[in-house]
Design a protein around this nucleic acid. Structure first.
Lengths: 263, 263
DNA sequence: GGCTGTGAAAGGCTTCACAGCT
DNA sequence: AGCTGTGAAGCCTTTCACAGCC
């Protein structure tokens, strides 16, 4: 399986908790909307509502950035937009490459929110030679062969992988070797990267599966015997590993319905 | 109405921690790959490596599901695939609708991993009348007017929103009113839903911004005394709010520009 | 009076390390 | 001997609640 390990270094960047960092973009978006409506100031309560979090959390989050509010008044919208943008590193423009210009890659290239805030699509790269030169979202697609050159010439440090799963690790390795140190992965694979490289993943089917889990729970609130049609468990466990849960005897028909857990 | 609040109920589902639920799909994917290679059993160490987590975490996660391993041996791959699938609710087929068939919606409709594991695209819905009837990924697009009917006739409880931000809340309200109780939101907006409805969001620009934050950190590793030059803040803070940071422990003198980035 | 900023408490998640089963 | 399952410890995150400032 490819190289390195998937180390996640320390998670506490200098002083701002990771959980807070993950919410800053949310605040920024809400603030930008307020700014466009020329709202001058906003209270933690209002802003929290707009961002979908609670106000105590928001205030705590902001406290890691500094004391940017005014007691009795609230936060100055413009000022806070600037401070958060700066903290997130959006006062500069990050050139980004997208590798894999299929349906998804094209969708990403066309995504407006991209260019608007701190990011610029520096290049689109695909392995299909017949795509080369064809413009997508106004940008001509380039061939994978030139990947290293493209990265270097544009000083790209952020790469987006939208290839099929099978190609992702290889593309990742090349991106990293060429100098990319942050990767956003849309391919349904675990990527291995050396220390110092950040990977974030976006995975449709994982999200759906998480929803399905909760959905199932809502539906099975009363858990009637699951109608006969029980898909046969693929095989008995190891040999005769008597698996039980809790202490009581399981009411499970043939064994495994984990019974409702005693809270 | 853009009702309710974005309550996140309790986060501890029945008995399985949310963080564990979020990793089950990862384990499932790794196990499925092993299964395809006809690997009969796997140790926590091996499986953890394949899923990109550490083995203690994996064992703890599995312990919430029950005792499905065999000491001294490991886990039976097929059996575990079945157990996790069942736990996630993937032994049944979930009909899903995708609303908003633009670039992204089309990409999602074409996404293979969709149909493969427990999900079925029941319908594609778009507000553009000229799209109606046009097949995308082999499925004819239907008009938004019929949304409620489509949801009901297909017994859909999971909806995917891939519309522009402006339409998302309205679409969400209609989905929920029609009976959808789980939503995967790709639009860059905070959705308000009543209690009992789950929302997960996937947001490209948030992910990129988080990466940019860390990227900026990496670049500014040595933080030399910050000279003068700093991009003018959009306006002074409120009036003369003297903002300071920490108790003087901060290496940052007192200005806020965290050093310019070379890179 | 109103609202921020923040210690302190509570809760959740991860990691450790080892008892216990095969 | 090997590997799982799990209490206990440690860390991170969220929430509470109120002092402090406008």
């Amino acid at each position: 399986m490819a190289t390195g390990r998937t180390h996640r270094p320390a998670t506490r960047s200098r002083g701002i908790p990771e959980a807070t960092v993950a919410r800053l973009p949310l605040y920024l978006r809400a603030l930008t909307a307020l700014s466009e409506r020329s709202v001058p100031t906003v209270s933690s309560e209002e802003l929290a509502a707009a961002a979908g979090v609670n106000s105590a959390k928001l205030r705590k989050d902001f406290s890691y950035l500094g004391s940017y509010g005014t007691r009795g008044v609230g936060y100055d919208v413009e000022y806070l937009v600037y401070q958060i943008s700066r903290e997130l590193g959006l006062t500069q423009d990050w050139p980004v490459v997208i590798v894999g210009i299929g349906n998804l890659g094209a969708a990403l290239a066309n995504y407006g929110g991209f260019a608007s805030r701190g990011f610029r699509v520096a290049a689109l790269i695909d392995a299909d030679p017949s795509m080369a030169g064809k413009p997508v979202a106004g940008i001509p697609v380039q061939h994978t062969d030139d990947l290293e050159m493209i990265i270097e010439e544009n000083g790209v440090s952020i790469g987006v992988i939208a290839t099929p799963a099978g190609a992702a690790q290889q593309v990742c390795d090349r991106l990293v070797a060429a100098g990319v140190t942050s990767i956003l992965n849309f391919a349904p694979t675990v990527l291995s990267v050396p220390d110092g490289v950040d990977v974030r993943k976006v995975d449709l089917s994982i999200e759906l599966q998480i929803l399905a889990f909760h959905e199932q729970r809502k539906a099975g609130e009363e858990t009637p015997g699951e109608g006969g049609a029980d898909t046969t468990p693929p095989a008995a466990p190891p040999a005769a590993a008597v698996r039980r849960r809790g202490e009581g005897t399981e009411p499970g028909p043939d064994g495994d319905v984990p019974a409702v857990m005693p809270a």
